[in-house]
Design a protein around this nucleic acid. Structure first.
Length: 498
RNA sequence: GGCCCCGUGGUGUAGUGGCCUAGCACGCUGCCCUCUCAAGGCGGUAACGCGGGUUCGAAUCCCGUCGGGGCUACCA
């Protein structure tokens, strides 16, 4: 065992530290959620750090997206970009001098050495080891170079990376979600800390920052599981040279979120694009709720809950270690449940941006428009799974009469000769109404069409629905008529008849 | 190739030796409700990868095996 000091007595400090490459994806959000929930559950600190050490792949745009997504999801951070903190800066690109210093101290203390092997040589030896059925990591070629040899390489002008010298022993750690995991010494290889050009690598920057920021619990994806023993060895060296608080954090590796074919969902997969979910009308509550279900459960008979409820009972030890398939159907169902959890006022407010981007209301929204939307919201509250569905559902209330149109297939089917007759009867019944409200409208229509014409309800209201809303599928008819108003309702009925 | 992780219905999970003739949810599906669509209610469908052990008793423990995934970079 390599435990130096336990983290048990320390206040929890967890973190989320993505690198800003490409679009934020769902696996990332799940990791962020679990780390956040862990920190919040323990009343600890949640650190948000940006790992932008790879200038070739990182982008400022991606950085902005990351911030947007975290805010949209409501995963607030105590230290990090925009809020600062005692251990900043929180973007690695602004901490380069720190890494250079740590690297120098590591080398000085003998924990790291310059390796002059070039990538071709490395590849050849790696293949040879593999062919011999052996572990194929770095073979330690430059581990104990003599001063003469080093001088010779330098004279040649050979570039060198800085490599960490792994201790020659097995390393065991207790993973927070998987239990004890052991890597034997012959599978632990010296690894690069600094590129030949002096730029630090993730292998150095990530543990350095975790140590300096006092991280007690590292929750991350399973892909980093096999790099854990070498980080543990690094922490031991840190303790010796005085980097960080002298303790090693605990590690927990979250299972993958997979897509079709059980492959880990990558940033390239369209279904993993987080912003696309927002655009499609998912609620942050819905997405978060669904993501929480991937590898965790709140109870054996319940799966709709808020992130606050999650925080209350979240235990990392109860996270399931096996990979979970992202199921869009269930995600939608959960989202629908979360829509139903919203009050009418809340829902109406969430709907505004979607109506604006559809061009149905102005930006900023006017008071009149807001009023119509608020009145229409109860009609869709139990009918939608995605926010965007509302737009098509109540478009008929927002379009100018000149833009109103009826779905052609629905018109043919519902407004044939018989249907037109029904619409005419509806017009007659409605035009004489004293009170224009749902109850009066319903009473008048039932009397005229069902009692009067002897129609089945389904046949009676179909033509009216199509004439009024433009579609065979719509919100409840009588309420829709009331909201549309007498004038517009009558004119649409008249238009359908003509 | 080597190392590591994982293995309950189509999907996500509950289950930590007897409460399991395996629970819940999504999906699919039948019915009810109903002005359409939903929502809601009541049913149905379907799983412990396989083989050995240990035990009076195993989804739960052990071994093996098969299968899936990840890592194996001067990416993160």
């Amino acid at each position: 065992m390599t435990d130096l000091t336990t983290t048990a007595a320390r206040p929890v400090v967890a973190r989320f530290c993505p690198s800003p490459t490409g679009n934020p994806h769902v696996g990332m959000a799940r990791t962020a959620l679990f780390s956040w929930a862990f920190a919040r559950h323990h009343g600890g600190t949640f650190v948000f750090r940006i790992e932008d050490t790879d200038a070739a792949r990182d982008s400022e745009e991606s950085y902005g997206l990351l911030i947007d997504v975290m805010k949209w999801l409501g995963l607030d951070w105590d230290e990090g970009p925009e809020v600062g903190g005692p251990n900043g800066p929180y973007r690695q690109s602004e901490r380069m001098d720190i890494y250079a210093d740590v690297a120098a101290r590591l080398q000085e203390a003998g924990h790291a050495y310059r390796c002059f092997c070039n990538t071709d040589e490395l590849a050849i030896r790696r293949e040879a080891a593999r062919a011999a059925g052996k572990s194929s990591g770095y073979d330690g070629h430059c581990r104990n170079l003599s001063a003469e040899k080093i001088a010779a390489y330098e004279a040649e002008g050979r570039p060198a990376v800085l490599r960490f010298r792994m201790p020659d022993r097995d390393i065991t750690f207790t993973d927070l979600v998987r239990g004890d995991i052991t890597f034997t010494a012959d599978n632990l290889h010296d690894y690069a800390l600094l590129r030949a050009n002096g730029q630090p690598l993730y292998t150095l920057t990530n543990p350095t920052d975790d140590a300096m920021m006092g991280i007690t619990h590292v929750l991350r994806g399973e892909d980093l599981l096999s790099s854990t023993p070498r980080q543990i060895a690094l922490y031991e060296a840190f303790a010796e040279i005085g980097v960080g608080g002298g303790f090693t954090p605990e590690f927990g590796h979250l299972p993958y979120v997979t897509g079709a074919g059980n492959r880990k969902l990558s940033k390239r997969d369209p279904e993993s694009n987080l912003l696309a979910y927002r655009d499609q009308g998912f609620l942050p509550e819905g997405l978060l709720n669904y993501l929480a279900l991937l590898g965790w459960s709140i109870a054996d008979d319940r799966d709709v809950f808020s992130k606050e409820e999650m925080v209350e009972v979240f235990e990392i030890g109860r996270v399931n270690p096996n990979p979970a398939r992202f199921d869009i159907k269930k995600c939608e169902a959960i989202n629908g449940s979360q829509v139903r959890e919203l009050s009418i006022e809340q829902l109406a407010a969430r709907l505004v941006p979607y109506f604006q981007s559809a061009g149905l209301v102005s930006d900023p929204i006017s008071d009149d428009e807001r009023e119509v939307l608020a009145a229409a919201t109860p009609l869709v509250h139990e009918r939608i799974t995605l926010l965007t569905e509302t737009v098509d559902m109540v478009r008929f209330l927002f379009v100018a009469e000149s833009d109103f149109s009826i779905d052609e297939a629905d018109r043919v089917k519902n407004l044939d000769d018989k249907g037109v007759g029904t619409a005419r009867a509806a017009y007659d019944a409605l035009s004489g109404l004293d009170q224009w409200d749902t109850a009066s409208i319903e009473a008048a229509l039932r009397a005229a069409l069902i009692d009067g014409l002897g129609l089945k309800p389904r046949l009676a209201f179909g033509p009216v629905r199509v004439a009024i809303t433009g579609s065979r599928i719509s919100p409840p008819l009588f309420e829709s008529l009331e909201l549309l108003g007498r004038e517009r309702s009558l004119s649409r009925l008249a238009a359908a008849v003509a």
